[in-house]
């Protein structure tokens, strides 16, 4: 039987955006190229273009988020779409309505796209499998599985600073175990052909399967940062930790927190990234987070352009297919 990839349509184009895993390199490069064009929209007096006028996009956030939700909302609004923000904690699911019933209702309201954030891995896939055929789904983070738009905005930020992926050594530092961002980044970095991806962290926070992704594992920050071009710090996800995975935050900072002294192990022009929200003094010191190597706030701006790119590519593909069917 032919392999079925739910996020790719019959023409090999992006239908949903659920994970960076298994996508062709050209598809990722297309997203980055589109985003490059969309960055200019944010610098204009009228920060709006008419591409998605008349479309309705529902942000379904089953888990709290500020940065991701607001940048998705801004991206949709800059494309002239109408946006519904549905905060599920306060909505009808607490009154016992099932998820599928809620989807049917949103479909009945003629929504065109769902942006889904959920604490369970696979939630966005589940929704993509059960929505009406004309509806498109973007994964805005599911459990510890994937956060593809975050990974792509990180790739975009790297490309804007470093140009060629093939020359780069990239280190991802910290809580890999709970990080959907790290998984999506590793798939994207590998597909884009970086020279080396390293993951650095204590054994308790590095899942064993990460070895299968073709990365090099380090438990020592000094050794791991040697000669790297890009440092991606991850947030210590205390809310997802059920056991005692680290001795204390203080000790964690001693060993894995990024300080100016440790940053000096990397290349002199290394950039420091963080998907946010940052825990100052836990995984990164304020001197580094606010310092000259940090591109953390650029990542936020780039997030809008990447989300505009993904939304417009997916909706453009949908229109193209509708036309062919007629």
């Amino acid at each position: 039987m032919k392999q079925y990839n739910i996020q790719i349509d019959e023409n090999g184009k992006l239908r949903h955006f659920l994970t960076t895993e298994g996508l062709k390199r050209q598809l990722l490069v297309d997203i980055l190229d589109h985003a490059e064009n969309f960055t200019s929209v944010g610098n204009r007096s009228v920060k709006k273009i008419p591409l998605l006028r008349g479309n309705t996009i529902a942000n379904l956030f089953f888990e709290p988020s500020t940065r991701t939700r607001t940048t998705f909302e801004l991206a949709a609004k800059r494309l002239s779409a109408d946006v519904l923000n549905i905060n599920i904690n306060t909505s009808a699911t607490t009154k016992g309505e099932s998820l599928l019933d809620m989807l049917r209702n949103l479909e009945a309201m003629h929504c065109d796209m769902f942006v889904v954030r959920h604490s369970q891995s696979g939630a966005a896939h589940f929704i993509a499998r059960h929505v009406a055929p004309h509806i498109r789904v973007i994964n805005a983070g599911d459990g510890s599985h994937a956060h593809p738009t975050q990974a792509m905005l990180d790739m975009f930020t790297i490309r804007r600073h470093k140009k060629e992926f093939a020359d780069l050594r990239v280190a991802i530092v910290g809580d890999i175990l709970h990080s959907r961002v790290a998984r999506s980044q590793i798939h994207a970095l590998t597909t884009l052909g970086v020279h080396e991806v390293r993951v650095i962290g204590p054994e308790t926070l590095l899942p064993r399967e990460v070895q299968n992704l073709g990365v090099h594992i380090y438990h020592d920050l000094h050794a791991g940062l040697a000669n790297v071009d890009v440092i991606i710090m991850l947030r210590l996800q205390r809310e997802r930790m059920t056991g005692a995975l680290i001795p204390s935050e203080r000790e964690y900072f001693e060993l894995y927190g990024l300080t100016p002294e440790k940053l000096a192990f990397a290349k002199p022009d290394a950039i420091v990234m963080h998907p946010g929200p940052i825990n100052r003094g836990v995984e990164i010191s304020s001197e580094v987070a606010d310092g000259p190597h940090s591109v953390i706030l650029e990542q936020v701006s780039n997030g809008i352009a990447i989300r505009m790119a993904v939304m417009s590519i997916i909706m453009g593909n949908r229109f193209g297919n509708d036309e062919e069917r007629e």
Partner: peptide
């Protein structure tokens, strides 16, 4: 000017990234 974000045939052909942005 790159008018591809303003074209009225987006719903038929989608967007193309090749053209340089407006300046």
């Amino acid at each position: 000017l790159n008018i591809s974000f303003y074209r009225d045939d987006f719903t038929r052909i989608g967007v193309h990234p090749q053209v340089k942005p407006s300046r």
